[in-house]
Simulated scan of single mutants.
Amino acid sequence: MNGPVGPYHHGSLAVQDRVGVRELADHVGRSIGPGIRPVAAAFLELQPMVVIGAADEDGRVWSSLLTGRPGFVRATGPASVSVAGGVPDGDPLAAALARGSTPVGTIALDPRTRRRMRLNGTARPTRRGLAIDAERVFSNCPKYLQKRDLYAPAPGSAPVAVRYGARMTPDQADLVRAADTFFIATLAPGHGADASHRGGNPGFVTVTSPTGLSWPDYPGNAMFLTLGNLETDARAGLLFLDWATGTTLQLTGTARTLFDGGDRTVRFTVDRVVEAEGASPLRWSPPAYSPANPGLPR
C-alpha cells in the first residue's frame, strides 16, 4: 500500500508491518486529529518551553528550543496556535520560519508532570512570533520521560555564545553521552514535519565518532512516526539540552534505522553542529529517572 492510511504515510506503515504492530498502530492512531481540545489548550498555556522541528532554507532539518513565560504558547482557535517571540535570532531555523509557510512539528514536554503533546502543521510568521495551523494533534504516554522540577529562571539576559562546527568537540560529545533526553525532528515530503522525544538512562546515546552517534529505539506507541519519516527521508535534526545550565546543542544530519530481530538501532551522521551556551533561561533540577527506562548493557 503506497498512499497514506488514516494518520500514517507509507513509511510509517512499512515499519509497522515490519515490526508487526499494524493493528495496534491503527487503534492508537485514532487519537490523532486536527483539533486542539480544551485539555490540550490548557496544557499548552502552562508550558515555559516547546520544541519545534523544520527544515532550514538549505533543506537541513533542525530541532530548536523555544522558551517564554507560561502563556507564550497558546491555542487561538480549535486548530491554531500562536507562539510569542518565535525562534531566537541566530537559530538555524530563524530565516526559514520568517518567510512564508513552513511545515513544522512541535512537542510540548513538561518534565514537572511527565506529560507531553505533539502538534504538527504549518507555521507562518506574525508580528508577535509564529502562528501554527494544526493538522495533527495528539498526546503520548509518559514512557521514558524523566521528572524534573523547574527552578527560578536565570537572572538577566547575558549574551549567548554560539559555536558552529561540522563535527562535535570533545565537550559536546560528553554532553551527548551524559544525556537522558533529546529531541528529534524529521519530515516526509508531502506529509509534513514531526518533532519527537527520546529518553533513557544516561549513556543510552552512544558517540561513535565526532560525526557519529547511535541510540536504541525503545518500544513505544507503535505509531513509528519518526522511523516512518526516516524510511522516506533520512534528514533529521537533534536537540540536546544541558538542563542545569541552559546550554543547547543542535545537530543536523542524516539517520538510518538498523533492524536486528526484535531490536532497532538508529545511527545518526552529523553534518552541522550549533552550540548555544546558556541559550535557555530555564534551570531544571536533577532528574528522577523514568521507571520505564531499560537498563544499559554492561
Rank of each mutant, 00 (worst) to 15 (best):
R116C: 01
L296F: 07
A55E: 12
P103M: 08
A255Y: 08
A234I: 02
A84R: 08
G86R: 10
P287Y: 00
I36G: 10
L46V: 01
D171R: 07
R235A: 14
R198A: 01
A244T: 11
P281T: 13
P216A: 00
P142S: 04
L296K: 09
V50T: 14
P88H: 07
H9I: 07
T208R: 01
V50A: 11
P287C: 01
E45C: 08
P216Y: 01
F72W: 09
V73M: 13
T113D: 08
A179K: 00
H191E: 15
T232A: 15
A279I: 08
P291M: 13
N229K: 10
H191C: 10
D149S: 11
W284E: 00
A95Y: 05
L130I: 05
R124L: 14
V61P: 12
G105Q: 11
L225G: 07
A54T: 15
A188S: 15
L119D: 06
G86D: 12
A222W: 01
A41S: 13
A154M: 11
R177I: 10
G246F: 02
S196G: 10
G86F: 06
G237K: 13
R69G: 12
L65P: 00
T208C: 02
R267M: 06
E275S: 08
A55V: 01
L241K: 00
M49I: 02
R22N: 07
M1W: 04
R115D: 05
H10N: 09
S63K: 04
W284L: 02
Y218I: 07
R267K: 01
N140P: 02
L187S: 12
V28C: 00
A255C: 13
G278M: 02
R298S: 11
R256W: 14
L227S: 12
R37K: 10
V205I: 08
T76V: 11
D217N: 14
L150Y: 08
E57V: 15
D17F: 08
S12L: 11
V50P: 00
S82W: 05
D233W: 04
A279H: 05
F224C: 09
P155E: 11
P159M: 01
L119F: 15
T257L: 15
P48L: 10
I36D: 06
P294N: 04
A75Q: 13
P103T: 06
R69I: 07
P142I: 04
A161N: 03
G77Y: 02
T252Y: 12
A185I: 05
R283C: 02
P287A: 03
Y289Q: 12
A54W: 14
N221L: 06
D58V: 03
P48I: 14
I52S: 04
R30N: 03
A158I: 02
